[in-house]
């Protein structure tokens, strides 16, 4: 069987997970791979659970990643990394944005946000990269580039040419923000150099 790269992007509605997965699938498409991408939208408004499966390789059949086959998970939020951990290959890489987003339901009795989700992920997985993308995006002057920053980090663990990433970013981000987004991508890319 031909090699397929399985990437899961997870987070909370409003964090830009779906745009990030659009960019990733575009980059894989432009790199001449067969690509499938799947997510369910409908009630995925602000604050809901969002997940997107992206798979690329010579020939991809299922748009969904089989459980236990995921090579890389990019989690935009700590508890979301935990929610989808069962999809991971034991040798896979989990990239966790250190952001914590407590849902309003936690205000009601009987619901609790997990104690230390990142710690739990680190306990179970050998290869975990953490990044404080929210802070870094704010330092760059625009919290909205958090997702591009995270893509920069993702780009260090999947092999797609950097020039293609840059093309895709230029083509997809809002007009006038391409320079900022390219800088965010670069920052995300450099923030993990050497520790994979």
């Amino acid at each position: 069987m031909s090699e397929i790269k399985n990437i899961l992007l997870v987070g909370v509605g409003g964090q830009g997970v779906l745009l990030a997965s659009e960019l990733l699938s575009d980059a894989a498409f432009k790199s001449d791979f067969d690509v499938k991408k799947s997510e369910v939208h409908g009630m995925a408004q602000r604050g809901g659970v969002v997940s997107s499966h992206v798979r690329f390789g010579e020939k991809v059949h299922s748009p969904l990643i089989p459980q236990g086959d995921c090579d890389v998970m990019l989690a935009f939020e700590q508890a979301e990394a935990l929610r989808w951990l069962h999809f991971m290959k034991s040798s896979g890489v989990v990239i966790v944005n250190q952001r914590v987003w407590v849902p309003p339901i936690a205000l009601m009795k009987g619901f609790e946000y997990p104690q230390d989700p990142l710690g739990m992920v680190q306990e179970r997985m050998q290869r975990v990269l953490k990044i404080n993308a929210q802070q870094m995006a704010e330092d760059l002057g625009n919290p909205k580039v958090e997702n591009t920053l995270l893509l920069g980090t993702l780009s260090t663990v999947i092999e797609l040419p950097v020039t293609i990433w840059q093309d895709v970013i230029r083509a997809r981000v809002p007009k006038g923000t391409d320079a900022l987004n390219l800088r965010a991508f670069e920052l995300g890319l450099q923030s993990v150099t050497g520790e994979k």
Binding site: G47, A79, E80, L85, H86, P103, P104, I105, F111, M120
Partner: peptide, 18 residues
């Protein structure tokens, strides 16, 4: 095959009015 790992029960994020 190797048994599926049971998903972790993580707090739900049900939709609420904007």
């Amino acid at each position: 095959t190797s048994a599926f790992v049971k998903p972790e029960e993580v707090i739900a994020r049900p939709p609420i009015f904007c």
